[in-house]
Write a protein that binds this DNA or RNA. Structure first.
Lengths: 170, 170
DNA sequence: TTGGAAAGTCAACAAGGCTGACATAAAATT
DNA sequence: AATTTTATGTCAGCCTTGTTGACTTTCCAA
């Protein structure tokens, strides 16, 4: 490969020419950045002997209060057995409340208790602060590009769920 | 917070003003995108009954051929027991070769065999394709911003290791 | 009223993290 | 030369978080 000089230019058809080297850097940046992204929450969670799975559950329950278990399963992309284990400990510990549905009594609607909200706040404060710092360091134009690439990288199906969530909570 | 209209503008001191809502979207985009990012390799790996841990090892051995176990440990951020388990299977299966160091005979230098390179290619082809598609969808300016935010999001220590790696392989 | 969806539970298992303890060889230091 | 430190590997055991499969209970809807 003798294309070291090509630095992501626009081709005739509007196609991006990217070297394998540039793509590899993007891939590694994603790997390392994800570690940074989860580092603060992981540290906090270990104080409560919870893990990332608890964080995710707490995050999305806070995000969409009253959501059903099935909704949560679809968003998190795990089995109900896996989610149930996490959800059970959160309910036992009084962070999440599970209310039987009024219209459909088979459904359980999930809510954070005050204690749950407190943990959610602690976690999201840390994570937002990290994100804010990264945004600040990279500048406003970079933020746009960051979001655009991430959204293009999602599975189409996930992107759909993501957008549904965006709408339903606005 | 009543700042729904503020869409990431530049303040007086060159500070970015970002709403919690905007930051939350970035956080969720990161979560969903990472799933997309690992989806293709995960699928491929399951055909060989390997996991992400094997992928990471193969990636960085390919990236820096002849690297030592200790180097790899520092980059991957896991315990030697954890890495060793993965490395042992890769060596047994003939994907990785471990050579005793010439200068320091305590060290083991790691290389991919042809078989190892074949798997690495299969994995990185898929991942590069996904990355390329995301870049293409987002456009050339977005690519810059994407990388800038990711690099700012890494732990400083990880960033250092990342850059060291960048230099040593160029 | 009966089929099927939603939810939960139990059991068993695997990957991939972790800690702690210990062994060996070789380099570095005293 | 003796001692300590470093690099690596290995055994044992534990935890979290994912998986599959089987089964039950509840209850909506055709």
């Amino acid at each position: 490969m003798v294309d070291g000089a090509m630095k992501g230019s626009l081709g005739g058809e509007g196609l991006l020419f990217l070297t394998d080297e540039q793509l590899r850097k993007g891939i590694e940046a994603m790997f390392f950045a994800y570690r940074g992204f989860t580092a603060d929450p992981d540290r906090i969670l270990s104080n409560y002997s919870y893990g990332r799975a608890h964080h995710r559950a707490v995050h999305f329950v806070n995000r969409a209060p009253g959501t059903t278990v099935n909704n949560l399963l679809a968003i998190l992309g795990v089995t109900k057995q896996s989610l149930n284990r996490v959800l059970r400990t959160l309910i036992e510990d009084g962070l999440v409340e599970s209310r039987v549905g009024t219209q459909d009594k088979r459904e359980r609607h999930l809510f954070l208790t005050e204690k749950g909200e407190a943990l959610e706040r602690e976690l999201s404060d840390a994570q937002r602060e990290r994100m804010r710092a990264a945004y600040r360091a990279a500048g406003p134009e970079a933020v746009q590009g960051f979001r655009q690439v991430l959204e293009a990288m999602m599975d189409p199906e996930l992107n759909r769920k993501f957008n549904t969530l965006k709408e339903s909570s606005s």
